[in-house]
Simulated scan of single mutants.
Amino acid sequence: MKHMLALGAAAIAVGAFPTQALAEEGEVQVKLLATAVLPDGKIDTVNVDIVGLPAGTQTEANDNVVPTIAIEYFFTDNFSVETIAGITQHDVDGVAGLPGAELVADAKIVPATITAKAHFDLGGVKPYVGAGPTYWLIFDEQPGAATLPLGVTDFNFDNEFGFALQAGVDVPLGEDGFGLTLDAKRYFIDLTAQWFAGNTLAIETEHKIDPWVLSGGISYRF
């Protein structure tokens, strides 16, 4: 349900501009992308630990490649606002203290993001930079297999706000509105993870996620 709401919000953000305004003020660009999500996932802080984690326990999240859609509205040729829609899934494993142990399984993330972008015209290519807020909706996360023998029965990632920086380039292909696009985003976001044994909070940790999100694909501007 959460990811459906996020996709709906993206559509509403674009649909909020009247058709006449679109024709007079700018253009819409839609991008179909293959996106690599490369998170960190290390532990910054241990707030609660009643099970006694090994000293120096550290974690990382796995990388993933997913399809995404970007929708962009141009107020002028040099300024636009863009939102993305997509879902990525990640596990979190131990790398020190609990090497190879699956601690979190199948966490699905909708990184709802809006960026304001400045564009530059260099003839055949159009580079851009951007920045904006992000809100991560996380659902279906499960305790990892290695935590079940410890009596863990439930797991939760909090939804969180963060910030994203962006840079990329659009390459027009002819005069029909089609093009190629390359995009890189760096997210700055921390998540709080909680493992429960029944109704008891057994472990609570704060994780630095800060993923690189690298995309490439095709665009159509109209």
Rank of each mutant, 00 (worst) to 15 (best):
A96E: 13
I87C: 08
F155Y: 14
G100Q: 07
I114F: 05
G132F: 08
E72V: 07
A105M: 05
T147F: 05
A85I: 15
A70H: 05
P149L: 12
I189G: 01
G177H: 04
F161C: 10
G94Q: 03
D93S: 11
G151W: 05
A164M: 08
G94P: 00
H119K: 13
P111S: 06
A70G: 02
D106Y: 02
F155N: 12
G177F: 03
A184H: 04
A96D: 14
K117S: 08
E175P: 00
H119L: 07
D91T: 12
D77G: 05
V104C: 08
A118R: 13
H119N: 14
I84M: 11
G124L: 14
R186P: 04
F188W: 11
Y187H: 14
D158L: 01
T68R: 04
L98C: 00
G100M: 07
L137E: 15
R186H: 12
E102V: 00
V104F: 03
D183N: 13
L165W: 06
A131Y: 03
D121C: 10
L173K: 00
G124Y: 09
G132I: 11
L98P: 00
H90L: 15
A101T: 05
V129Y: 03
K185L: 13
Q166K: 08
F161R: 13
Y135Q: 09
L180A: 09
S80G: 10
T113Y: 02
A145V: 09
V125C: 06
T88R: 09
V171Y: 10
Y73F: 15
V125Y: 07
G130Q: 08
V129P: 00
I84V: 10
N156Q: 13
F157H: 11
L173P: 01
F188I: 12
E72T: 15
A118T: 11
P133R: 12
F157S: 09
P111Y: 03
Q166M: 09
A146K: 02
P172S: 07
G132E: 12
V95M: 02
V169Y: 03
F79H: 06
V171K: 12
T68D: 04
Q89F: 01
T68V: 01
E102H: 00
T113I: 05
F79P: 02
F157P: 00
I109K: 02
Q142D: 15
H90C: 07
L137V: 14
F139K: 08
E160L: 06
L165H: 04
I189W: 03
E141Y: 02
P127N: 08
D190K: 12
T153A: 00
R186L: 11
N78A: 14
P99R: 07
G144W: 05
F188D: 04
G168K: 01
E160P: 03
A118P: 01
I71S: 14
D121R: 07
K185A: 11
T115H: 02
T76D: 06
I189V: 13
I87N: 13
V92D: 06
G151E: 11
T181L: 05
V152R: 05
T153C: 01
Q142G: 06
N78Q: 13
V169K: 06
